[in-house]
Design a protein around this nucleic acid. Structure first.
Length: 396
RNA sequence: GCGCAGGUGGUAGAGUGGUCAAUUACAACAGACUGUAAAUCUGUCGGCUUCGGCCUACGAAGGUUCAAAUCCUUCCCUGCGCACCA
């Protein structure tokens, strides 16, 4: 009985859509089938972010139901890179970098997934099968999809309309990702709503090649109520290696409208309680206080109760009472060094010009004293440098 | 292969010989106001600078000119149309 509730929660909370249907998946889970489910991650950087966390959290719920979980690293795709992806201008990663990233991923993911015990989550790499494919294999795969099926994807459709280029190899990415499902012979896949197309390609391929009905569960993305604006969130995207204070602060900087989705997607607070809080806010309660709860709940998942509470205190102290925080980054400096140089080298500011502008705008203080000379030299150590509202640096 | 239209800063998109480090919008950053929210207002938004300037940048390489994002040549790339269609 309780199990049914648990299952219901798994297939509804934060879920955008389930293919072929929610009932299809429900029935399987209720029968107690040990499903194999995976999440694909592209190892483009050393950290996972909140978007990954949302999916990982869902996977952990499946793991708790006894499902077999695979975290798939798209090392093959990452190493090939995507030359048309100008935005990312991501450099091609070497084998070592990818492997190193993956190690870090496992650590970060283990907040949610259990990689040990009798039902351990498994880490796999798609280069294992994709790197081996020859042209014939690829053609065979490509023959399973038509061009118009590919063009259904919004991104392609839009570019087509706007007369912007679509390169042939771009059609291969969904195929490659789709083939992962086939190679691992999975029962289902979990991913963000933005990955729907790729995941469905995998579903088609699995049906074609193995006559298997793979389910696809898409998670809601963290957006505001209108569902459109991710806006500022990008910059405030939590990285899973942010420290507790940073996480707490970033959440507080989110738009209020993000809050409710965030509670559902990123915390364990149950639905009833969320509703209660919503009612409080419409009853006139300051949304800030609810957001503080959110920030606390999120920090708690990664750092535990006491550190989350500490982050909260730190936040109140620093930003509500405008005092200097207890902990901040410390950098070693020498008296007489040009402050601007030190900051550029350490990456706190982009360039000397950048620093000059900040000084001119009155954004830089040392021990609370606004400085006006951007060519200031370091006069003494053990002082607190503040740039803008959030950058605190201790010079030692 | 031929023809036409294009390639500009993080993005979109002006500019077609000097007044262009490049209008404008968005994003970003900072200041004011706040709840490190939103909205609003103001400022900044290539690098270096002895604050006089200097250097690097408008697809790439050459050239014309006192002077080029802007003109010419070649090349590369994109879209569209025509041709090709085994």
């Amino acid at each position: 009985m309780e199990n049914k509730e648990q299952i219901n929660d798994v297939i509804t909370r934060g879920v955008e859509n389930i293919y072929p249907s929610a009932d299809f998946l429900r029935a399987k889970l209720e029968r107690g089938e040990k499903l194999t489910i995976y999440l694909g991650i592209d190892p483009t950087g050393p950290t996972l972010h909140l978007g990954h966390a949302i999916a990982l959290k869902k996977l952990s719920e499946f793991q708790a139901l006894g499902c077999k979980i695979i975290m798939l690293i798209g090392d093959f795709t990452a190493m090939i890179g995507d030359p048309t992806d100008k935005k990312a201008t991501r450099k091609q990663l070497t084998r070592e970098e990818v492997l190193n990233n993956c190690k870090l991923y496992k650590k970060q993911a283990s907040v949610f997934l259990n990689f040990k015990g009798d039902n351990p989550a498994e880490l796999k790499y798609n280069s294992k099968w994709l790197a081996k494919m020859n042209f014939e294999d690829v053609l065979n795969l490509a023959s399973k999809m038509t061009v118009s099926q590919m063009l259904e994807r919004d991104m392609f459709e839009n570019r087509m309309k706007e007369g912007r280029p679509i390169f042939l190899h771009e059609f291969m990415y969904p195929l490659m990702q789709g083939y992962d499902s086939v190679a691992m012979d999975v029962d289902g896949e979990v991913g963000g709503n933005d990955q729907t197309f790729n995941m469905l390609v995998g579903r088609n391929l699995l049906k074609e090649l193995k006559n298997k009905e793979k389910f696809v569960l898409t998670m809601k993305l963290l957006t505001d109520n209108s569902g459109t604006k991710m806006g500022k969130t990008e910059g405030n995207m939590l990285s899973l290696i942010d420290d507790a204070n940073m996480m707490y602060g970033k959440v507080m900087a989110w738009e209020d409208s993000l809050m409710w989705n965030a509670f559902v997607l990123c915390t364990n607070v149950d639905a009833e309680e969320i509703e209660k809080m919503k009612a409080e806010v419409s009853g006139g309660k300051n949304p800030r206080d609810i957001k503080m709860r959110l920030a606390y709940e999120i920090a708690r998942i990664y750092y535990g109760d006491s550190k989350a509470k500490k982050a909260e205190k730190e936040f109140v102290k620093t930003f509500q009472k405008k005092e200097t925080p207890d902990e901040m980054e410390e950098i070693k400096v020498n008296v007489g060094d040009l402050l601007a140089d030190v900051l550029v080298v350490r990456g706190f500011v982009k360039s000397k010009s950048d620093f000059r502008r900040l000084v001119e705008e009155g954004a830089v203080t040392i021990d609370g004293e606004k400085i006006s000379d951007f060519q200031i030299k370091i006069e003494k150590t053990n002082v607190v440098l503040k740039i803008g509202k959030k950058r605190f640096i201790k010079l030692i």
